[in-house]
């Protein structure tokens, strides 16, 4: 366990960074707009982890006050992220609405095909 200690200490951070980078990669590399939105939500969920992980205290419990409980995890990040999730789905719906309209106008949701159509129009 001694050898594992530095890995354990930062494992949450590394997974958070992995999810963040994966989301960023999908947003930049993929041309499909639904895929881009999925990448954006990957990025978003990694931010949930980024906020919640430092608030956890090992041996603690959820921040609901009860008898015979000494250690609680930090409630503040939970509050911030709870609202962020609902706002996140609302903005995702807005993005999907734009995708639907783009699909209706261009008949495709691939970025490259839209660019070629635009070039042909000129």
């Amino acid at each position: 366990m001694e050898v594992l200690q530095p890995i354990l200490a930062h494992f949450n951070h590394w997974i958070t960074i992995f999810l963040m980078v994966a989301g960023l990669y999908v947003v930049v590399a993929r041309g499909n707009m639904i895929k881009k939105l999925i990448g954006l939500s990957l990025f978003q969920t990694s931010v949930y982890l980024l906020y919640i992980s430092p608030g956890k205290i090992l041996g603690g419990t959820a921040p609901i006050i009860g008898d015979n409980i000494e250690v609680y995890s930090n409630p503040l990040p939970h509050v911030l992220i709870l609202t962020a999730i609902v706002v996140g789905v609302a903005t995702l719906a807005l993005g999907l609405g734009l995708v639907v309209r783009i699909n209706e106008v261009y008949g495709t949701i691939e970025e490259d095909e839209i660019f070629t159509q635009e070039d042909d129009d000129e």
Partner: peptide, 16 residues
């Protein structure tokens, strides 16, 4: 707000 927004969004997408 949240419940009616979610239902309205779903109706809007479903109607399309």
């Amino acid at each position: 707000t949240v419940s009616s927004t979610m239902i309205a969004i779903f109706y809007a997408f479903g109607g399309r």
